[in-house]
Design a binder for these strands. Structure first.
Lengths: 366, 366
DNA sequence: CCAGCCGATGACATCGTTGTCGGGCTGAGC
DNA sequence: GCTCAGCCCGACAACGATGTCATCGGCTGG
């Protein structure tokens, strides 16, 4: 009985005893469980992975022992044996956009629900020797599965390197689907069209667009959707001057909004390619004394936290992050289930929705 | 010889061959290196950890072999042997504040520079059974070191649980230092005083304060610093009505700013306890047609990305995240170096700075 | 009644690395 | 020349879990 306790009856370990007073609870191993249940370690293992056939009675005894010892299998040892960590990898870069952070969070939730873990590695864009870093991440950490976000999910050398190391990838919102990795995408073009159609329905005709960062495929898709909406509605092509560049940043949004509002014939509505830029647009408009949404309607994209926080709250497109990450994990699980199947490179479309809030309203009669 | 193939030349493995065409490059093990260098695995290990004495010539041979095989030690196996993963743990909750995200990013950078890894686990505030989750994280993942952020770093049951499992913690900005874990803190009170003194120097007398989330110690410290500045300057206690509650969110900042600006005798300057709320304050002020900084000065806290992005750019306190996380890792390293030392529970103070931008200006003569 | 079979279980090896211990080699001192 | 110290280095085991194969029952069918 005693200091460390129970379960393992008395064990003679002194392994760490000299190391200070750490009453560190040494965790029970599969051997301890086996001993207590009066079976072999292998049988315990069988019970855990409910493999093959184990007598109900034995199974019960083992389970009881596990419970009594508060046994948790050691993931490190499992990883060693299996030549693979149970963790899903993800590469993180500059977090300032918020997009990456939200995906990361959603992925953690999805992993939690699937009994997995997430292991993140830093990748700064300008990093020299990124190959070695990735290699080390994969190789040392035993990562065999990864989720790639924009913009890395479009970086072919990275994908080649990962493939070379046998890492299975799922791509989130890649520019173009990859024949070897499943992709999780949303229909940016359709979403952008819905935005414009919503604005049309409110009577807007001159609509400005602040585009996204040119490196992200989504930027192009959203802009294309913007243009297509005109065609679909049988309207003439929009004035090209109404489309200004942006970069998904607040600052870029400010510049874009200024450019649009400085025009001789400014738009009555502005569709920014993400919420940060939309928020900046609201700010710039209010600074100029415009009343929102009466004198200017603004639409964002992403439904970031800021969209609901600011005033007026933003009409925006909700990206289904939960669903996207959930499917990403599901895709990895499925891949494991039927490993040999080469047909896994599916493209999975997720459902967005237009969230109408207070930043859009009918064109003011004037 | 060569059941598995020397030096990676031709190897006869078929382990995964049925598994599609994966030309998976199987990574070299310490045995491969040893074989190629003509030494025993143990010697290779010695070279890697530059332990003890190895002949320069041998060392050289081994290094060459390692290089030739592109050998990277397997962290999983090491972890198993060492009973500890090389990773530092961190608990992540709701990312919307941005604070956590920035720390996380800075920590990844610090880990990178120290050849370590970061392993994150999700902890939502309302989670039932968090004990089991933490236990699993620590126990299964082999985590022996952690960095705790607010508000978890003040949660005693959590710290007790971790201690019980022998996990070493470093606390970032805890409410009060812990006798068993080193803490990395900044002097929030002094920083808040500097903010107010800056405003005093611009001629402001009626200064509003939007406080932070009551659960965060920093909120109290910043408010106290706000009050102390008055005493230090020999001025009467500030009007209590000028201090309104907040919660570090954009939305909370909006509400706070509205409350302050709705007063009969509104303040000429507002000090928000973080940048999000300061940004909200700017937005609200501009919505009301106030010119910044002429009619209202605004100060934030944190130097979040938004501080430099919006117009006017925010005067704010820069929290030295890089330094804080760097020191956190250093503290862990030091702890390892002299494990038995109990004196590690130091409190490490980091240096903030007041960043003066465009959101503050002299009181308008009127 | 015995051969053969099948279902449940255990012994052993293995994953890649490192601590322990002892063996062998070298060189110095007598 | 011999011995012994001291330095390198390798054999072995161990970390905790699991795949492989053997084994040990008991059971059925001829």
């Amino acid at each position: 009985m005693a200091w460390r306790g129970g379960g393992g009856d008395q064990d003679g370990r002194t392994r760490d005893d000299h190391l200070s007073l750490d009453a560190t609870k040494v965790m029970a191993t599969i051997h301890d469980v086996a001993l207590r249940a009066g079976v072999s370690p292998k049988t315990v293992s069988r019970v855990m992975n409910d493999h093959e056939s184990v007598t109900a009675k034995t199974r019960e005894r083992v389970r009881a022992a596990m419970q009594a010892l508060d046994y948790h299998p050691n993931a490190v040892a499992r990883g060693l044996r299996a030549q693979a960590a149970p963790a899903v990898g993800i590469l993180m870069g500059d977090p300032s956009g918020g997009y990456q952070t939200r995906i990361h969070h959603a992925l953690m939730v999805a992993c939690l629900q699937n009994g997995r873990h997430l292991s993140a590695e830093l990748v700064e864009g300008d990093m020299a020797g990124w190959q070695d870093r990735i290699r080390a991440f994969v190789t040392e950490g035993g990562i065999r599965e990864m989720v790639l976000l924009p913009p890395e999910c479009d970086f072919a050398p990275l994908k080649a390197l990962l493939r070379e190391h046998g890492v299975r990838c799922v791509l989130i919102s890649p520019t173009s689907p990859d024949s070897l990795s499943p992709s999780i995408v949303m229909d940016d073009r359709a979403a952008a069209r819905e935005v414009v159609e919503h604005l049309f329905s409110l009577g807007h005709e001159r609509i400005g667009h602040i585009a996204g960062h040119p490196d992200h495929a989504a930027s192009t898709l959203r802009r294309n959707g913007f243009n297509e909406a005109y065609a679909a509605a049988g309207k003439p092509r929009p004035d090209p001057a109404l489309i200004v560049p942006g970069d998904f940043s607040f600052k870029g949004g400010l510049a874009g909004a200024q450019a649009l509002l400085d025009m001789d014939n400014p738009p009555t509505a502005i569709f920014a390619a993400n919420d940060d830029m939309a928020a900046a647009t609201c700010m710039e408009a209010q600074r100029r004394g415009l009343k929102l949404p009466d004198e200017l309607s603004v639409v964002g994209f992403d439904d970031a936290p800021i969209a609901a926080a600011i005033w007026p709250s933003l009409t925006t497109i909700r990206q289904p992050f939960d669903q996207m990450t959930q499917r990403a994990i599901t895709a990895l699980n499925a891949w494991n289930a039927n490993a040999a199947l080469g047909k896994s490179a599916a493209t999975i479309l997720t459902q967005h929705s237009l969230v109408i809030r207070e930043s859009t309203g009918p064109v003011r009669a004037s």
